[in-house]
């Protein structure tokens, strides 16, 4: 089986918010960070990262600002806004509920019915 899990629809935004919440990041950094914090399990399609970033910025969940990158180049750094932080909290809670529900459903044995 492939060691990379496919991204569930709707989870990309959540992951980006999470990545950015840890530390301000530029686009490529977001990609690397998600890969890192998912234990190299999640691979984000590079083409869909930027539309998602622009959408989140448009919605005011993250804020982009131009700054200096580690190798001294101009880069756009994204940070989480207050609204973004609230959204992340909500989505995390929602996700945990869902995951727990699914896990509980999948772990059900015939005896428990």
């Amino acid at each position: 089986m492939n060691k990379n899990a496919d991204l569930l629809p709707g989870t990309l935004d959540m992951l980006i918010l999470k990545a950015v919440s840890l530390k301000p990041l530029h686009g490529y950094g977001v990609l690397l960070r998600i890969r890192q914090i998912s234990g190299e399990a999640l691979e984000i399609p590079q083409g869909s990262l930027y539309p998602a970033l622009y959408r989140l910025e448009h919605q005011g969940l993250i804020a982009g600002e131009w700054g200096q990158s580690e190798n001294n180049r101009r880069a756009k750094y994204y940070t989480l806004t207050a609204t973004g932080r609230r959204r992340l909290r909500e989505e995390t809670a929602g996700w945990n509920r869902l995951a727990a529900a699914i896990a509980s459903a999948l772990n059900t044995t015939p005896e428990e019915i």
Partner: peptide
Amino acid sequence: QGMSEELESH
């Protein structure tokens, strides 16, 4: 300009 730059640098 910003968009091109961002994508290119990526």
